[in-house]
C-alpha cells in the first residue's frame, strides 16, 4: 500500500486518524516524536540501552492508551510525561528504591534558604548563536549536566531543554511547584557557573563585593 499521507498533517489530525485505527498515522507520529523522547531518555539516563527501553515503552504505551489522550496538553508533553515516568522507574531501580518518590528521597537542604552564589562572573566570549553545535560544545554541555545532582538535572531537562512549564515539570516528576522552582534555580546557577568557567572571557571578569551597597 502506498502511503499517500501529506507530510504536513498536524499532530492533532494524525492523532484522530490513529485513534480511528490508521497505522500509517501512528507510524508518522512515532517518526515525528521518537528523537525527542529518545533524547530526553538519553539525557536522563545517560545510557543507550536504558534510553532505548524507555523509548519503546513510551510508544508501546501510546498504542495501548492513545484513546485516553484527550489533547489537554500537546502530544509531545504527554509523550515526555510517559517517558519521564518510565525513566524514573529505571532511576529508582538503579538506586534500589521501590516506592519512595523523588520528592521523599531528597534531603531537606532543598527547602533551605541558601542559594549558591555566583562565583565566576564574566561576559561570554561568544553568543549562543556563534557557539554552533560543535562536538566540543556538545561535550561541554553534557559534562556540565552530568555534574548536576540528579534531582536538579531532571528538572532542568524537562523545563529548559524540553520546554515544559513549571506546572508540567512538577507533575511529571511528582514534585511540588515550589520545590521544582528551587531545583530549577539551583540547576541554572550551577550550569551558568560551569559554562562561564569555560566560555567566559577572563578579561571581563567581575568581582562581587561582599558588602554590596544596595
Amino acid at each position: 500500500m502506498i502511503n499517500q499521507m501529506p507530510p504536513v498533517l498536524s499532530d492533532g489530525e494524525l492523532v484522530l486518524r490513529a485513534k480511528a485505527g490508521d497505522l500509517d498515522a501512528f507510524d508518522a507520529l512515532t517518526t515525528r516524536h521518537e528523537r525527542r523522547v529518545y533524547s530526553l531518555a538519553m539525557r536522563m539516563l545517560r545510557q543507550e540501552q536504558d534510553a532505548e527501553d524507555v523509548t519503546q515503552q513510551t510508544f508501546l504505551s501510546v498504542v495501548e492508551h492513545l484513546d485516553r489522550f484527550r489533547g489537554e496538553s500537546s502530544l509531545s508533553t504527554w509523550l515526555l510525561r510517559i517517558a519521564t515516568y518510565a525513566a524514573l522507574k529505571i532511576i529508582r531501580k538503579r538506586k534500589g528504591l521501590d516506592i519512595v518518590s523523588l520528592e521523599e528521597a531528597t534531603e531537606p537542604s532543598d527547602h533551605s534558604d541558601t542559594i549558591p552564589h555566583p562565583e565566576f562572573i564574566a561576559d561570554w566570549r561568544q553568543s549562543p548563536e556563534q557557539l554552533v553545535e560543535t562536538r566540543e560544545i556538545r561535550r561541554l554541555l553534557d559534562e556540565a549536566l552530568t555534574q548536576l545532582d540528579e534531582k536538579h538535572r531532571l528538572v532542568f531537562l524537562l523545563r529548559d531543554v524540553e520546554g515544559l512549564s513549571i506546572k508540567e515539570t512538577a507533575a511529571a516528576l511528582g514534585l511540588s511547584e515550589a520545590n521544582t522552582k528551587m531545583r530549577l534555580l539551583r540547576a541554572r546557577l550551577q550550569l551558568r557557573e560551569q559554562l562561564t568557567q569555560t566560555l567566559g572571557d577572563p578579561a571581563t571578569q567581575l568581582i562581587r563585593s561582599h558588602n554590596h551597597p544596595r
Binding site: E34, R35, R36, Y38, S39, M42, R43, A51, E52, T55, P128, L131, E133, I137, R138, L141, F156, D160, V161, G163, R188, L191, R192, L195
Partner: peptide, 13 residues
C-alpha cells in the same frame, strides 16, 4: 546558558 541548552541537537536513534 538556557538558550544554549534549548538549541541543543537531539540524539539520533
Amino acid at each position: 546558558t538556557i538558550t544554549l541548552y534549548k538549541n541543543g541537537q537531539p540524539y539520533e536513534l
